[in-house]
């Protein structure tokens, strides 16, 4: 029971750290940047500032056809991983309980 408590507290801390910026506790991302844009995209903007002449010399072979498709694929990536971890911890927990 004590362990469950500890896990819950850690989870609440993660949720809190993630929710804090969403509740308005964040710095101004700058006039030319959307709020909560990806840091990867912001780095591209910095590159364009530093070397205005730089032309990317390759392009992605395939791009998700829309933002929705991209979210779907990211969700799928997370779901596959979480599913496997859940399965493993669940099955090793029942095996552990069977032994003791």
């Amino acid at each position: 029971m004590k362990q469950t408590c500890k896990t819950l507290l850690l989870l609440i801390a993660v949720i809190f750290i993630t929710a804090l910026p969403l509740m308005g506790f964040h710095l101004d991302p700058g006039a030319d940047s959307e709020i909560f844009a990806g840091a990867d995209d912001k780095a591209m903007t910095v590159i364009e500032e530093i070397s205005p002449g730089y032309e990317p010399w390759a392009e992605a072979l395939w791009e998700p056809t829309s933002g929705e498709i991209a979210s779907m694929l990211f969700a799928l990536q997370a779901a596959l991983g979480a599913g496997f971890i859940g399965y493993y911890i669940g099955s090793s927990r029942s095996r552990h309980k069977g032994l003791t």
Binding site: L27, G38, A39, K42, A78, G81, G83, I85
Partner: peptide
């Protein structure tokens, strides 16, 4: 090993907001 891989899969798919005003 599968769990280690799955954990990297999950976490690298989660884009989280940060106090800097951008996501990573």
């Amino acid at each position: 090993l599968g769990v280690a891989g799955a954990f990297a899969f999950v976490l690298s798919a989660l884009k989280l907001p940060s106090v800097s005003g951008s996501c990573s």
